[in-house]
Design a protein around this nucleic acid. Structure first.
Lengths: 196, 196, 196, 196
DNA sequence: TATGAATGAGTTTTCATTCAT
DNA sequence: TATGAATGAAAACTCATTCAT
C-alpha cells in the first residue's frame, strides 16, 4: 500500500543481508587491526562499498558500539552459564578462559569492559559486570579465589592473559596462551600459608 | 671536501645535544602515540625541526630501532642487576615488575621482545633473552619458579601484566597494575600440592 | 565485490569529465612551468582536487606520458594533413611551423620527439617520425628541401626555431618567432649555386 | 699595521682561491642544470661548503651575474676579433658559430643576452650588443646577410641553433649541431631571386 | 672565514569522508 | 540504496637558507 505516511516498512532483504555482512566484516577487521581500522578495510571484508558502511554507521562510535554489543552479548551468555553451573572453580575457570581468549581476539576492543560507548553499551556492560561480581563473590566465599582481588580486576587480568596471544601475531598459538592463562588462574587462587 | 684528509672534526655541540633530544622525544612520542607517531610530533617533543629528525633517521625503521635499543639497554641493565643479586625470588620479582611496567609504558614497542628490527636490535634482544633464560633457570633450580613455565613465556606475561594499565588510559594507576603483577607473580610460583 | 560478475558499469559522468579536465590542466601546467610542475598546480588548473590527479596518475611518469601522447597525436594529425596535401613546400612549411610553435609552447616536453617515455609513447613517436620521414623525402625528391638535411634533423630545427620564443618569456611575441622560423625555413631550401 | 681604520687589506690567499673555485663550479653547474641549479650542487662542484657560496653570493642573482659577466666577456672578445677581421662572411660565420655553441653549452643562461641582471651585466651586454649591431650592419651593407633580419634576432637564432644540441643530452654531438648551424646560417643569407 | 647541521616552508602523497550516479 | 570516484586535510618528505661552531 504505497501511501504518503511512511508505513515503516520492513527493511529490504538485501538491506538486512548487508547489515549482517557489515557487522561481521567489522568484527573481523577490528579483531585484526584494532579500533582504528579503516572503513575501507571493513568494507573490503564485508564485501560492500565504503559508502554502505558509512550509510549504516556514519560515526565510528556507532560501529564500534554495534561490535561491542555483539561481543558483550556473547560474554554475558557465558557468564550466565557459569553462574547456572554453580560458580565453582571449574565454572569460573571456564568463564575466565573464554573471557581471556575472546578479549585477546578482540585486541583493543576490550575498552568495552571499562567506560566507553553509549547508553546501550553501558547497560550491556553493567549486566555483564554484575554477573562478574556475583561470580567473583561466589568464588571468594567458597574460598577458591584469593580474597584480595577486586572483582573489577578480573577483566584486566583476562585482557592481560591474552595480549600475550596478540604479541605473537600467531593467533593460533593456543598452547602459550593457555599456559599463560593457567599461570594467571593459579595466581588468582588464595595464597597458601607457609611460603617465603 | 676542502681538504683531502677529512680531519674528522668532533660533532658540533648542538648536533650532540640534538641527538639526545631526538631520542628522548621519540621515546616519549612512541610511548604516548604508538609506533605510528608522526615525525612532526616527535620533532615537537624533541624541540627540534622535522628536518633534524629526518637527517638523523631518514627511515622510520632506523628511528624505531634506536628507540628499541635504548629500551633494551635499560632492561638488560635491570636483568644483570637481578642476576648479580643472586636471582632469588625478590630479585626476580623486581626484574619482572620492571619489565612489566616498562613494557606497559611502551605499548606497541614491545614487539621489540619478539622479532622485529635489524641486526643490532636482534643482538641486543639476544643478550637480554639470554639473561632472562639464566634468571629463569636459576629461579626454577632454586624452586622459586614453577617448572612448567618456559623462559620465553616471561616477556609475554610481563606484557600481559600491564596491558592492564593501558586499558585504563590512566597510565599512573599503579595500584591496579601492581595488584595484577602480584597475582601473576603468585601464579608463577611453583604450585602447592594438595589443592583441588 | 557485491556481485561476482563485475557488471562493468560505464564510468561515472563526473569521472569522464574529470579525465579530460586533468589532461587539459596538465598540458597547461606543463607548458607554463615545465615537467616539474607540482600536482597541486595541475589540480588547480584542472579544477579538481589533488587526490583526483593522483587517482588517475599515481606516477608522474604516467601523467607526462598522457600529456605527450596528446601532443604527439596532434602533431601526427598535422603531418598527415601535410602529406595529404601533397607534401609540397607550402604544406611542409605549414607543418614545420606548427611543429615549431607547438614545440615551443611545450618547453621541456619536447623530449617526446627523442627517446623518453614508455612503449605507447614510443609507438606514437615512431608513427610521427615515419610521417616526417615521408614528408622529408617527398620534399627532397621534389627539390624543395636541401638534400644534405637528415629527416631527423627536422624536429631539432623546429625546437631550435622556437626556443627563441621561450627566451623572451613573451609567449605571444609571434613576430620574432615567425621571423626566425622563416630564416630557418629559408636555410632548409636547397642551396643556390654561385654563391661565395 | 693593525689599525682601527680598515686598511682595505688584500684578500687572503685562500679567499682568492675560493672565489675562483666558486665561479668555476657555478659555471659548470649552471651549464649542466640551468639557472635553477641548487647551491649545494654548486658547492659540490666547487669543492667548498654551501655556506661559502652563500657568503660570497648571498643572492642568487649576484651569483648568476658573476657567471654572466664571465661568459659575456668571452663572447665580447670573439665579437671584437670578428670586427677586426673585417666582418666579412667567414668572420661573421665564425662569430655566430661561437655564439651558438657557447650559448648551447650554457643552456638557460642565455637570458643574459636579453634583459636580466644588474647594471654591470647591462653594461657588458650593451657592449656586446653594440659589437653585434656593427657586425650585422657591416654584413648587411656588404650584402652577405639578408636585409630583413634585425640585429637583435641574431642571438635568438644562435640560441635556437644549439638548443638542438641540448635536446640530445649528448653535448658532444657536434655533427648535428654544426649541420643545424649551417642551415640557419644559410637561411640568414640574402634570398636569391627566382625561387618559388 | 669555512663548514655543514639545523630549520621550516613548501611539496608530495595518503586516506577518511563525502557525494554524484 | 549501494557504489566507488572525488575531495582536501593532514602526514611524509625535501631542500633552500640560516647560523652555531
Amino acid at each position: 500500500m504505497p501511501s504518503a505516511e511512511r508505513p515503516e516498512r520492513p527493511p529490504r532483504a538485501d538491506a538486512r543481508r548487508n547489515a549482517a555482512r557489515v557487522l561481521t566484516g567489522a568484527r573481523q577487521a577490528v579483531a585484526a587491526h584494532g579500533l582504528d581500522v579503516s572503513y575501507h578495510e571493513i568494507a573490503r571484508r564485508a564485501g560492500v562499498g565504503v559508502g554502505t558502511v558509512y550509510r549504516r554507521y556514519p560515526e565510528r562510535g556507532q560501529l564500534m558500539e554495534a561490535v561491542l554489543l555483539d561481543l558483550l552479548g556473547e560474554l554475558t551468555t557465558g557468564a550466565e552459564r557459569a553462574l547456572d553451573r554453580g560458580a565453582d572453580w571449574p565454572a569460573f575457570t571456564s568463564f575466565f578462559t573464554d573471557l581471556a581468549l575472546r578479549t585477546g581476539e578482540n585486541a583493543g576492543l576490550t575498552a568495552s569492559l571499562d567506560d566507553r560507548g553509549g547508553p546501550r553499551v553501558a547497560a550491556a556492560r553493567r549486566r555483564l559486570l554484575e554477573l562478574l561480581r556475583r561470580l567473583t563473590e561466589h568464588a571468594q566465599r567458597a574460598g577458591t579465589l584469593r580474597a584480595d582481588l577486586r572483582w573489577h580486576d578480573i577483566p584486566f587480568l583476562a585482557k592481560a592473559a591474552t595480549s600475550a596471544a596478540g604479541v605473537l601475531d600467531l593467533p593460533d598459538d593456543r598452547s602459550r596462551a593457555e599456559r599463560c592463562i593457567r599461570v594467571i588462574l593459579d595466581g588468582m587462587r588464595p595464597p597458601v600459608a607457609g611460603r617465603s
